[in-house]
Design a protein around this nucleic acid. Structure first.
Lengths: 156, 156
DNA sequence: TTAATTTCGATGTTATAACACATTAAGTTT
DNA sequence: AAACTTAATGTGTTATAACATCGAAATTAA
């Protein structure tokens, strides 16, 4: 039980099964994130930047106000304004004003941004192999299900 | 399938089952980390700081060289030197030199550090309830097992 | 022993994240 | 419609993280 985790963290035991689960979630998340960052860095992107581009790509040719971007992010970042500033500098996105609500600062992905996403996509998709190799379809569904149970209580 | 995740990220579909699993791991990790940070911030600690203290507590009254601390961290941080500097300033840890290897910068947790850990422990432990409420013992074991399969291929 | 290589840690620099505050516009209430 | 509350964003500041470099000490090889 938990031998791989023990080995990785060089621990001999865990305080509880809950803690073991918790640590395993953190470790797996870190593992996958590292893989993603490895791929993305070759295109000069960070994970949050990639996620924002992905979110914007989903509504192209429309844009999103900042608040909507945040609410759709995996890890809501407080400083999205300047994150977008950086994407803007690379001309991967563009800003425009909303007609209906003058408070909103809208952002839309550009052609260049879409091209970059398309370039990165195959390599990101291929990271799924870490999951596909390790798990059967049934196992993937079980895993997703168990994870949703953990955070689901607060979402509903 | 994945209704809670869809709702949270405001997406209507996912590219693949692999991606859904991946996102669920990220989201759950973020959820649990937020809960931890919420508790720790009341004691002026960050997650990486807490982890370093926890690691040092495990070998008290001995210490660890910097490199060993990094290898035991959940998310190995490159800048542990200054992370320890900050703990040092709060007198939660102390530095000393190794007798056998003069390159090593050893760090040991202090009484004050141990007291702080003891103060935080109950609240951190109680975060296990998010897992215990959601999952049975069997489910926890299955979950841990599936997660280890994902990152385990590269550890062995 | 000397030279070359590797390991470990600290430091300078730059980029990014976190936090608090200020500003402007919408929406609401009276 | 005027006052009030809420929402959305930008900005200044500070803290932290990431990256590269450097020097000291240990290890290995010649």
């Amino acid at each position: 039980m938990g031998e791989i985790l023990k080995q990785l963290l060089k621990q001999t035991k865990f305080a509880s099964l809950d803690q073991e689960v918790s640590l395993n979630i953190f470790v797996t998340s870190y593992f996958l994130r590292s893989k993603h960052e490895e791929v993305l860095s070759k295109s000069g992107l960070t994970m949050p930047q990639y996620n924002v581009l992905r979110i914007l790509n989903g509504v192209y040719p429309n844009g999103h106000p900042r608040c909507d971007i945040i609410s759709r992010m995996i890890e809501p970042a407080p400083d999205v304004t300047r994150l977008i500033d950086r994407l803007l500098k690379e001309k991967l996105v563009e800003r425009f004003n909303s007609d209906t609500d003058k408070r909103l600062s809208m952002t839309r992905i550009t052609e260049k941004g879409i091209k970059l996403l398309e370039k990165v996509k195959p390599e990101i998709d291929s990271l799924g192999s870490f999951i596909s190799t390790a798990l059967s379809t049934t196992e993937k569904k079980i895993l997703s299900d168990l994870l949703e149970k953990i955070y689901g209580s607060e979402v509903k």
